[in-house]
Amino acid sequence: MAKFNLIQAIQDALRVALQVDERVLVLGEDVGVNGGVFRATEGLQAEFGSLRVIDTPLAEAGIVGASVGLAVNGMRPVPEVQFAGFLYPAVEQIVCHVSRVRTRSQGRFSCPLVIRAPYGAGIRAPELHGDSPEAFFVHQPGLKVVCPSTPYDAKGLLLAAIADPDPVLFFEPMRIYRAFKEEVPEGHYTVPIGRANIVRTGKDLSLFAWGTMLRVSLEAAELAKQRGWEVEVVDLRTLSPLDRETILASVQKTGRALVVHEAPKTAGLGAEIVSLINEGALLSLEAPVLRVGSYDVPQPLFSLEDICAPDARRILHGIERVMTY
């Protein structure tokens, strides 16, 4: 097996998908000649040609709208939106068309496309380049929303998303694109959409995270261990549909829970997870479920970026509040 970082794993997934299924197309701003803003598609146009790896104008609504037409006519488009904050011009297409084709046609058509979108702060980018808007799209029925945290999961989840009969929004944590490498199998494999992964077992508290926040949460869990607390860390991997069974089983075992996300705290996905736990595991709780998120402000620029997003210290403080309730 090769050792890939997250961006290499995504590139490999796209290459495998283009090799095994002639219906797969990659399109977006600069994905061809330049290989994408993060080089996720580097070399693919040279290998598969400009009719399958397509440079588009700078027009997110047009990129997604064209992908809808391709998808309903039998293709498997994988449009890239360079940053998650650039999804906003395409919201009308995503909400009014991408997510509704199956119900609008009463099942006669589906819209099998995967929108790739790097998300999150931490790379010292300008305004609108560091947003974490997953809650907007989790709220939209008809969409699946996926966010990997490791190279292995990134490749397997992306291949599963491309094979899925319905649309998937694929958030990529760009802050950890090149942070570490791990072994990734060659060829085609999938990681099931809709299943969380327990990456660290524990008996005292369940911590739920995804994307960039997983590694930070694992750091906090290690600090908590020094205080005698065994924290179970669960990587959700899929944000819609949530893996309710794994979430509830973990909380029923530990009796305490904390949710960590990079998006602003108010009305983030953490609130939905808290409600899910209250509905399904209330009698198991020894303390209120808490959330650690970014502050309720627009994503700040360079000098305040690290202060806004949760770090291991803030997460540890959240663990402490739950454990000492």
Rank of each mutant, 00 (worst) to 15 (best):
Q8D: 12
Q11W: 12
L14G: 13
A17I: 07
Q19W: 10
V20D: 13
V24N: 10
V26D: 06
L27Q: 08
L27R: 14
E29R: 01
D30V: 01
V31A: 09
F38P: 02
A40E: 13
E42H: 14
G43I: 07
E47T: 07
I54T: 09
L58G: 13
E60H: 00
G62I: 03
I63R: 09
A66P: 13
V68I: 07
N73M: 10
G74K: 04
P77C: 12
V78L: 03
A90N: 02
A90V: 00
A90G: 04
E92S: 10
H97Q: 14
S99Y: 03
S99V: 05
V101H: 12
V101D: 13
Q106M: 15
R108W: 12
R108L: 15
F109V: 15
C111F: 08
C111D: 14
G122W: 01
I123C: 14
R124W: 09
H129P: 05
H129D: 03
P133W: 00
C147H: 02
D153R: 02
K155G: 12
G156P: 13
L158M: 09
I162K: 04
D164T: 07
V168A: 09
L169R: 01
F171C: 08
V191Y: 12
V191S: 12
N197T: 14
R200G: 06
L207K: 06
F208A: 06
A209R: 00
G211H: 01
L214S: 05
L214C: 02
L214E: 01
L218S: 07
L218P: 05
E219I: 06
A221I: 03
E222M: 07
K225P: 07
K225L: 10
R227P: 09
L236H: 01
S240E: 11
I247Y: 02
L248Y: 06
A249I: 11
V251P: 01
K253C: 08
H261S: 10
K265A: 14
T266H: 07
I273L: 08
I273H: 01
L276E: 04
I277P: 04
I277K: 03
G280V: 08
G280Y: 13
L285N: 03
A287E: 10
V289Y: 00
L290N: 15
R291F: 07
D296I: 05
P300T: 00
L304G: 05
D311L: 07
R313D: 14
R314S: 15
T324S: 13
